[in-house]
Each structure stands twice: as structure tokens, then as C-alpha cells.
Amino acid sequence: MKKKIIKSIILLTISFILGIFFIGLNKSSTYNTKDLIGSKISKIQLIQLSENKIITEKELKNNDFTLINFWASWCGPCRDEHPYLLKLSNETKLKLLGVNFKDNKKNAKQFLDNLGNPYDYITTDNSGKQSINFGVYGIPESILIDKDLIIIKKIIGPINKKDFESIKKTIE
């Protein structure tokens, strides 16, 4: 009897492990930070591009929703998502905060002059250090937060049509 129990336990363990492997096969093995949806953004200190004003979380608490968008003039995919950002800037409930990432002022200004400026606030992150506070690891990356500074959406890579529509849905 005792032997039978041990044998069944061994068989069950093996089946369990193999089962996990089987399910694991269909999961993606690459990581992204989408797991962080639901966590809160804190300790924000962003310097505005044009004037020497600092933007902190206080400012963002007044908005219903804020989309924080990391971009740079040297980043190709940022051009692809720009039209969607322009469209989003028409939304009343949504404010756009652009963070200019590791860029120089002149190029950044030119980029916006040529393509249009969708941002309500434009800030700069010369060294890239601020991006770490937001959990950003490659640009473009966009974070949608609500009034309570909780992350409700993370878009890694350029915003596409699907993302655009889902943002619109979320803020309504």
C-alpha cells in the first residue's frame, strides 16, 4: 500500500512537470513590462523644454487622464506614431505629456515644427535617467495614467491604430 502511494506520487509529479512544460510551450518567452499595469507612478520631476519649469505629479493629478509619451527626433518609429498623437491631442479628457528622450533641443523643436505639436506639456530627459523612473526601456513608449497616477495602459513601441482606438475607448 505504502509503495503504491509513493509510486503514484512519483507518477503524478512527472506528469505535472511535463504538463507545465506543455502549457509553457505556448507562452511567449520574451518579457515586457506590461505586468506593471496597475502600479502607481511616483517621484516625477521633469523639466520643461522651453522654460525652466518643473513638472511634478501634482500637475498630473488635475487631469482625468494623462498619456506620457517618450520620443526623440532621432527615433524613426516616433514619426509613425505621430499622427495618432495629433489625433489624441483633440481629446478633452486626455492631456499629453511628451518626454523628449536623449535629444538635442534644436532637433526636437524642428521635429515638432515640421510634424505638429500634439503635447500639452513638453519636457526633456537629456540623460535618459528620468525614463528609468517610469520603467521605460526603449522608445517610443507611452504610458497612460489616470487621475490617481495609476498606470492603466502601457504601449511599448509606436502607437498603432489598435492602440489608438483602445486609448480612446478607455478615456470615454
Binding site: 507518477l11 512527472i14 511535463l18 512544460f21 506543455f22 510551450l25 505556448n26 507562452k27 518567452s29 520574451t30
Partner: peptide, 30 residues
């Protein structure tokens, strides 16, 4: 199934084949 530096071009159908084979081997020997 795992994330590695040494990327073999991978393909889940291979995984299923090896996994079935592995299961047969294990259960036979056990």
C-alpha cells in the same frame, strides 16, 4: 520555451515532438 543568450531558431512544433518523445521515454522507463 526559455529565454536564452544563445538563440537557436526555435519553433514550438519541435518542442511538442521532443516533449512527446520525452514523455514516452520517461513513462516507459519508470
Amino acid at each position: 520555451i526559455l529565454n536564452s543568450v544563445h538563440t537557436f531558431a526555435n519553433d514550438p512544433s519541435r518542442g511538442i515532438f521532443i516533449l512527446i518523445f520525452l514523455s514516452l521515454m520517461i513513462f516507459t522507463s519508470v
